[in-house]
Amino acid sequence: ILHLLYARFFHKLMRDEGLLSSDEPFKNLLTQGMVVADTYYRVLENGGKDWFNPADVELERDAKAKVISAKLKSDGLPVEIGGTEKMSKSKNNGVDPQSMIDQFGADTCRLFMMFASPPDMSCEWSDAGVEGANRFLRRVWRLAHNHVSQGTAGALDLASLDDEQKAVRRAIHLAIKQSSFDIGQHHKFNTAIAQVMTLMNVLEKAAQKTAQDRALLQEGLEAVALLLAPITPHISHQLWLELGHDDAIIDAQWPQVDEAALVQDSLTLVIQVNGKLRGQIEVPASASREEIEAAARSNENVLRFTEGLSIRKVIVVPGKLVNIVAN
């Protein structure tokens, strides 16, 4: 609060002195959430509480990993579990970032904190979450290393992509589109990171046999590096160089969406009979409602599960599903 007041005061002072023409220093206020963590304590003789840092406490869990007791590592005696509260000196539940940085690197810590929750919501600190963020960055590095070790990738020939390659490229540009929107419009870094994770799942399963495959993977890895750059700048910069670029990633242009890559020739729709999943059909993206309904009615599973029944209604949700109501 005080920093905001100070900034506004000096801005208005400079305005009054004729140094500035605007009334306010900021166009928008984003109030970030608190980082919360578990607390542990012992009750003192005077009724007060002696708080212990989570790093100094050893937890005992049951078969379902639920915490059932805690004890101090230094003396082995039990401590009370105080619940989850915002990190503070008074509760001694802060986590030293330096120890995490020494163990995992700054990028891992940044990724975890920005993925754990939206910036305006509270973030619950989790050592397991930090380890998960580190595993994801290792996956990115491993895929890029394997790709680069096979030599320089050639140019991508968009005119000769097969259906599987088109699906991979669609995933690349869908991630670019969604991440750009999440970061640029809503500052939701957590959902932007989720888009990159989804893209990584696709890239890891993509073929790497032909020159086209490798050129497509090159495009995908470059997109991953660029989308992660605001969040994990160090590994992204190194990945950018390893992928064959001479300039720093901070000077690179934000990836642009190729809308043509998002166009689908066909759609896979889920089929339900009375609300229960019974299969799926593939139809042309341009198929009309009548054509989709006809394809659904003639599906083998639909015929089997509607045998002896009368179809009362066919509900088509464009691009998603067909639900057949029969009795």
Rank of each mutant, 00 (worst) to 15 (best):
K166D: 06
K89A: 14
G76C: 02
I271H: 00
T232V: 14
G48K: 12
L158H: 08
P119I: 07
Q253N: 15
V314G: 00
R61G: 02
N190F: 14
A55E: 15
S88K: 11
D182I: 03
W125N: 02
A171M: 11
R278L: 01
V317C: 02
K66N: 08
D182N: 12
V148W: 03
K49D: 02
N146C: 09
N134Q: 12
K89F: 14
S180D: 12
K177L: 11
S88A: 06
A167Q: 09
F136K: 12
G48Q: 08
W141C: 02
K177T: 05
K66G: 07
L267W: 03
N301G: 12
L4K: 13
S286A: 10
F112T: 05
L161N: 06
A133G: 15
L5G: 05
K188G: 03
I172T: 04
L44H: 10
D96V: 14
V283N: 08
L72E: 07
E290Q: 15
K188E: 07
H234E: 06
V130P: 00
S298T: 07
R42N: 10
V202T: 03
A167F: 13
T306N: 15
Q165A: 09
L321H: 05
Q218C: 01
L203S: 00
Q98F: 08
D62Q: 09
G308S: 05
A159T: 12
G275F: 05
E282G: 06
K177Q: 13
R289V: 04
T84M: 06
E293C: 10
D50S: 10
R142L: 13
F9L: 11
G154S: 09
P25F: 03
L77C: 02
A133P: 14
C123G: 09
D23T: 06
L243H: 00
A206E: 01
T306H: 15
L161T: 07
F26Q: 05
N93V: 08
K64T: 08
T268V: 09
N93G: 12
S122D: 15
L221N: 00
I315T: 10
W141G: 01
S298G: 02
S21H: 13
P54F: 06
C123Y: 02
L5I: 05
P233M: 14
G105D: 12
H187S: 08
E85Q: 12
R142E: 08
K66Q: 07
F305E: 14
K320W: 05
D162I: 08
V168Q: 10
G83R: 06
F26V: 04
D50N: 12
L226A: 08
L2Y: 14
N146Q: 10
G154F: 03
A153P: 06
P119S: 05
S99C: 04
D163K: 12
S117E: 15
K91H: 08
G18P: 10
D56I: 05
K27I: 03
Q165S: 11
Q178K: 08
L226G: 00
I176H: 00
A155Y: 02
S22V: 03
L228S: 01
P54R: 05
P78E: 15
G319N: 05
V317N: 01
A225T: 11
N201P: 07
R304V: 14
A65I: 06
D62E: 09
T108D: 01
G184I: 09
V57Y: 02
V43K: 15
P284S: 13
G33M: 11
V263S: 07
Q253K: 10
H147P: 12
L262C: 04
T210K: 04
I292S: 00
Y6N: 02
G151M: 09
E219N: 06
V168L: 08
